[in-house]
């Protein structure tokens, strides 16, 4: 097998698309894990003082988890398009690159917005620690960050759904 064959084997359209899906889930999930972690640290501090705030803290901590879910959804859509579960389809490099590119918006926006959202939610945790009844405001400001992750998800999903082999 020549070097060219190996290159073609590795960078087949199918593999590129599958890599795109994996990369999408990877980035978004790392971002969410970081975001949820940031809030979790802040929440533990508050819960040490006032365990009754667990419900509110849990909610705020769950917010940056959305991006991971979005990344998962986009990845799953790419998997279905390339028929991963039915043994796969033949794709040319262009099609593979198309699907890879589709995943990028939610991959990157998911990664960065989850971390930002985590920071806002952690600040929200501080807020509810100091004042009662402010959880609505904390949630709202944190959710504003998520808007952009959802827009990115939309930009990722629409071309995937439109894609026909």
């Amino acid at each position: 097998m020549s070097a060219g064959d190996i290159f073609n084997e590795i960078f087949s359209g199918y593999n590129i698309a599958a890599f795109g899906a994996v990369f999408t889930a990877l980035m978004a999930c790392i971002g969410s894990a970081k975001g949820v972690g940031i809030v979790g640290e802040a929440a533990s501090g508050v819960l040490a003082e006032d365990p009754s705030k667990f419900g509110n803290c849990l909610l705020l901590q769950a917010l940056p988890g959305s991006q991971g879910i979005y990344g998962f959804v986009a990845a799953f859509f790419i998997f279905t398009k390339i028929r991963l579960f039915q043994g796969g389809v033949q794709l040319d490099i262009g099609q593979g690159a198309y699907l890879l590119a589709c995943g990028l918006p939610i991959a990157f926006v998911g990664f960065f917005s989850a971390i930002s959202q985590g920071k806002v939610a952690a600040a929200g945790v501080e807020l509810i620690a100091r004042r009662d009844g402010q959880v609505v405001k904390a949630i709202t400001s944190s959710a504003l960050v998520e808007t952009y992750a959802i827009l990115a998800l939309l930009v990722s999903l629409l071309p995937i759904i439109m894609f026909n082999i």
């Binding site: 959305s66 959804v73 998520e146 959802i150 827009l151 999903l157």
Partner: peptide
Amino acid sequence: ASDLLSYSRILA
């Protein structure tokens, strides 16, 4: 639109 897409979490 963002509210609506948020329901994709049901699928996920």
